[in-house]
Every structure is written in structure tokens, then in C-alpha cells.
Nucleic acid binder design. Structure first.
Length: 575
DNA sequence: GCCGTTTTCGGCCCGACTGTTTTCAGTCG
């Protein structure tokens, strides 16, 4: 059983224990373990085998034993007992907003409701309103929640969320009485998908009501879920839930920090404050009863003895310790990006000509463009055969003559075949300035097979960059399973770069592996995979994810000049 | 279930909103 499956089971155990009514701290320990597993970059079997796993804060002997049992494919008796004791449909019911473990248990014990379908029927038959703690309103809300869950998957892609957030931010920032307003939450932290959007806003007490009314009355608002003096929640017509919290301006930085999260970062920050004899909440940083005045988030961090922690890093994955030690990385920025790598043209499945793509990149201030159309195996994408490759190279040579102060590199997004070989011979590959190798077929592999396939591919000396390493499509399909650890080690060893595919549907390499890759000396490339000029804008998502992964300018291939990038490709070929 | 060197037992972050109450439990972030 792999890490992902183990995390899923421990998570399920936590929910089952909640419904059962177990010790809340035991439950929290399980939730913590899930998060640790999800963020783990080291090989789980190795950590367990060496016993190192119990050195991870939050994993003790008990949890290590559970993990080991599952890892060995053995049955976990505690899990089986929980499953035997609690009907499986309750797990689905627990996902319905507004229904927590206590109410789920009550539905089960009092009404014998154990499936979402039964719950829906019971609501329609008005059977809930008589149960203690439930009422007509609750019943109505459950029906709405069930309908909403059916309509929307619950998470949203970054472009959908950012567009919605920008629109609301515009509407709020110009409104009378608004002093400061910012997007917080997972969107500010650059998570790869978001569940909702959080706004924090400062205003005088007397202006709150009209600002709240303005917010809940916005054209994009489909439904007002909750509306209070300091906090409101709405659902937009696009299906995203949006929270707005309002405080007086003096509290703004504390609320911004609190609402940005992550939850785990906040818990650790509160503990840190407590250790220093202070207390932090969304209302302030306190020494005893006295507020420690802070104008900005940076002031808050400074008062706690920390460097400013950029929102992207606030996941409690070591950023607080690094900030205390003055060892936070100087993160890569959009302005550092010098070239567009991994782009397509009309030669394969792109919408613009090479010339149009080049002129647009130049216009945006970039110094070079790497054109990497699909190779012949990608027939569905009008992939290039050997003859057309030659013709495209002639076109690129001519354009390089014609366009001043700009460089177009000849490249190819070369398909990795099932056995790990590439679909062009070395005689053809050598004619490219650099080669991106990607998998586009035969996704149904086991982890060892897929890992081996990728490593074999990058062992070809012509390969410069590994494209979208897992092939995942966010919110749509999981990638093929790979051992990230092994692939990153191999790439670092060979001098091959791995891309962060900046398309917001991919964002693959996952940010959780970036820091490990960086520390292995791997060069990361932030690539738009642009199929049209507008696709260049996706680089911003890639930079956001790279920042989230602790990457600095020097870790990113396309922050280097055209000559340096070419040198990188040539150096790999010489190895 | 995890943690810790003034602890191996006794803690474990904090507050708003809702609905169903008439003072609060449950849920959420």
C-alpha cells in the first residue's frame, strides 16, 4: 500500500472516530498524521525501515506502527473495528457542509439515517425537524447543501478563483468607507486549487453595515449563506463560496494573518506566541491584556522574533523555524523570468505561428523563446515527423535572422514511449537546441513502471527537461503514480531539469516536492506549455507554485540568459 | 495519539455565526 492510500485510510479513521465520539486530541493526531504524510517528500518505506519516521514531529510510536502495518499490506485491526462499528454512508454525510460529527451521529442513532440518499428523503419528508438540535431551517439547509454538492465538486481552479477574487476586490476597494482590503486564505497562499475565497477588510464601525450590504448585494452573488456584523459568506454564480470579514483598521494586520492561514501555520504561530508569554488571534498580538501594536503583518512577525514569512510559505512546513533562524529563501519573482520555455505553434496543436509567438514573447520583455511542438507519436496533436522538423528548423533559422535582440530555440516536446525510449532517434534529437521529454500515452502504469519509464527517458543525453512529470489534471484526473524521490534524484544526478508546468490545470511538478528537489541541486524550469499567445500569462501560476515550493531565482532555469540555458543543455549532453 | 529536560502525566489554539435555544452546542475556519 502506498503513501496516498495510507493517508486516505488514516483520514477515514479520523472521521470515523469523530462520529464515534473518540478523544478529540486523538482525532487531531490522526489529522496531523495525514497532513504530514501528504507533505512527505522522503520515501515512506525507507523512513519506516530506518525508524526515522518517529523523529518527525507529530508521528509517534502508535502512528508509526499503524503506518507500518498498512505499508506491509496487512490489515489494521483498529481500522476494521471502526468500519464495522459505523455505516460507510456516514462518511459521505459528514462531507455535507453544516453537518459535523455530532449531528451525523444523531441522524444515525435517532433516525437510522446512514446514506446521503436517505438523508435527502428524510428532509423532504420533514422527519428531521423533530429531532433535538435540528429544526426546519437545518433541514432546508441540508437539502440545499446536497443540491450544491451535486452541482459543484467543491474545489476550484486558480483562474476561476482569481478572476472572481479580482472582480470582488475591485468592487470592494473603491467602496466608500473601505480603508484596507485584501484577499487572504488559500488563494493568497497560492494553493493549486481553492475551496473558497477569503477577503479581509478594515473600516470604521459605522461603515460596516453598508459595506456588508454592498458585498452581499454584488451582481455575482447567487446566494447569501451567512450574514453577520463582522462576517458574511456568499456563494457566487460560479459556485465559489466567498467570505468577507470586517474589522477596525488597527486589527487589520492580525486578521489578515489569521485569515491567510494556513490553519496549521496559525496553530504553530499561536503556540509560538504562547511560548513567549504572548497570545495571538485575529484581534491582535497580546502581552497579557495589552495589545502589541502592529501596522502590518511584518510587524507581527518581528514582534515574535521572526523574519517576514511570505504567504506562499505559510503551511507549517518549516517556515517558522526558518524565519526564526533568518534562513527564509529569497523567492523567485515574475520579474526574474527571462525566457519562455515549452511552447507550441501551428506546426502542431498551437494556435499561433512561431513568428507570432516570438514577437509576442519579445513584446512581453522576454529574451528568448523555446518552441517545442509535439513529436510524431502525438498524432492527435498533429505531431511533427522528421521531415517537418527539418522544415520548421529552416523557418526558425530565418526568423532568428529577421528578429533582432531575441532568440528562438529549436526544441521538441518529445513523447516518451511505453518502454522509456523517445520517439525520435538520436540523429534527429541532436538537431534540436534542447529537448523536453513528456509522457502523453499509456497512463495506466504501476509506480515502479512509471518511475522506471521516466528515468530511462531522461537518461537519453539529448533530454534537457522532463515535462509535466505526473501528467495530472487538477480536479479532473490523478497523474500516473511515480516515485518523485527517485525521479528527482536521477534528474539532479544527470543534470536534467524538471519543469513546473505552469498551466493552472497541471501545476506539475507538485510544489510539495520543490524544496526537496532544490536541495538535491535540481534545476527547475517554469514552463507555460503555451498553445497560444495568451498562454504566456500562465507563467504567473508557475512562479506562484515555485515560490510555494521555496524556490529561489537561481533554482529556476529560465531566469538565466539564452546563452546560459543553451550551455545547460549542452553540458547535459556532454555528461 | 503526541509531546516533553523545571513534565512520562496532563496538557493539547481561538473565536464567529447559526439555529434552536432562553444560555448554548455544534460547526467552521
Amino acid at each position: 500500500m502506498d503513501k496516498k492510500a495510507i493517508a486516505k485510510i488514516i483520514k477515514e479513521m479520523a472521521v470515523l472516530m469523530e462520529i464515534k465520539g473518540d478523544n478529540p486530541f486523538k482525532i487531531r493526531a490522526h489529522h496531523n498524521a495525514v497532513r504530514i504524510l501528504e507533505g512527505l517528500t522522503e520515501s515512506l518505506p525507507e523512513l519506516v525501515a530506518s525508524g526515522e519516521i518517529t523523529n518527525i514531529k507529530g508521528i509517534g510510536k502508535g502512528m508509526a506502527d499503524k503506518i507500518m502495518t498498512l505499508l506491509n499490506g496487512e490489515e489494521l485491526s483498529e481500522y476494521q473495528q471502526l468500519k464495522d462499528a459505523i455505516p460507510p454512508g456516514l462518511l459521505e454525510i459528514a462531507k455535507i457542509p453544516g453537518l459535523g460529527p455530532k449531528k451525523v451521529k444523531m441522524l444515525w442513532k435517532d433516525l437510522n439515517i446512514t446514506t446521503p440518499e436517505a438523508l435527502e428523503a428524510a428532509c423532504e419528508a420533514d422527519q428531521l425537524s423533530g429531532v433535538k438540535g435540528f429544526g426546519a431551517k437545518t433541514q432546508e439547509k441540508i437539502l440545499e447543501s446536497i443540491a450544491m454538492l451535486k452541482k459543484f465538486q467543491g474545489r476550484h481552479s486558480l483562474p476561476v478563483a482569481r478572476n472572481a477574487a479580482d472582480t470582488i476586490l475591485d468592487a470592494l476597494s473603491g467602496f466608500p468607507g473601505v480603508i484596507r482590503v485584501e484577499v487572504a486564505g488559500s488563494l493568497r497562499r497560492w494553493k493549486e486549487t481553492v475551496k473558497d475565497i477569503d477577503f479581509v477588510l478594515s473600516a470604521a464601525d459605522e461603515d460596516r453595515e453598508k459595506i456588508m450590504a454592498h458585498f452581499t448585494g454584488l451582481a455575482a452573488v447567487e446566494k447569501v449563506v451567512a450574514s453577520g456584523e463582522t462576517k458574511s459568506t456568499v456563494i457566487l454564480d460560479s459556485g465559489i463560496s466567498v467570505d468577507l470579514r470586517i474589522v477596525e483598521d488597527g486589527q487589520f494586520p492580525y486578521l489578515l494573518h489569521h485569515s491567510t492561514g494556513s490553519k496549521e501555520h496559525n496553530v504553530a504561530m499561536r503556540q509560538l506566541a504562547k511560548d513567549q508569554g504572548k497570545k495571538i488571534s485575529e484581534y491582535g498580538l497580546f502581552q497579557g491584556e495589552a495589545l502589541i501594536p502592529c501596522e502590518t503583518e511584518a510587524d507581527i512577525f518581528r514582534e515574535l522574533g521572526l523574519d517576514y514569512i511570505p504567504p506562499e510559505l505559510r503551511e507549517n512546513y518549516g517556515e517558522i523555524e526558518a524565519a526564526a533562524a533568518g534562513e527564509l529563501p529569497e523567492l523567485v519573482e515574475m520579474a526574474d523570468m527571462k525566457g519562455m520555455i515549452h511552447t507550441h505553434s501551428v506546426w502542431s496543436d498551437g494556435a499561433n505561428t512561431v513568428e507570432e509567438m516570438a514577437l509576442a514573447a519579445k513584446e512581453l520583455g522576454y529574451e528568448y523563446l523555446v518552441i517545442s511542438d509535439h513529436s510524431k507519436a502525438a498524432a492527435y496533436a498533429n505531431g511533427l515527423n522528421e521531415t517537418r522538423v527539418k522544415a520548421q528548423h529552416e523557418e526558425i533559422d530565418a526568423l532568428n535572422e529577421k528578429i533582432d535582440n531575441f532568440r528562438i530555440f529549436k526544441s521538441i516536446e518529445c513523447d516518451i514511449l511505453a518502454d522509456g525510449s523517445l520517439d525520435f532517434s538520436d540523429e534527429i534529437l541532436v538537431t534540436f537546441d534542447m529537448v523536453i521529454a513528456s509522457i502523453h500515452s499509456k497512463f495506466g502504469m504501476s509506480e515502479p513502471e512509471a518511475t522506471d519509464r521516466l528515468i530511462r527517458a531522461i537518461q537519453n543525453p539529448h533530454v534537457t527537461i522532463l515535462g509535466h512529470p505526473t501528467g495530472r489534471l487538477l480536479l479532473a484526473r490523478d497523474g500516473y503514480p511515480i516515485n518523485h524521490h527517485a525521479v528527482i534524484d536521477a534528474a539532479a544526478e544527470l543534470g536534467v531539469s524538471i519543469e513546473i508546468n505552469a498551466n493552472p490545470r497541471r501545476l506539475d511538478l507538485d510544489w510539495r516536492f520543490c524544496k526537496y528537489a532544490r536541495d538535491k541541486g535540481l534545476m527547475i524550469s517554469i514552463n507555460p506549455d503555451a498553445h497560444r499567445i495568451a498562454g504566456y500569462a500562465d507563467v504567473e501560476y508557475g512562479v506562484g507554485i515555485a515560490r510555494k515550493g521555496w524556490l529561489r531565482k537561481r533554482d529556476i532555469l529560465n531566469t538565466y540568459s539564452a546563452e546560459e540555458v543553451l550551455a545547460f543543455a549542452n553540458k547535459r549532453r556532454e555528461r
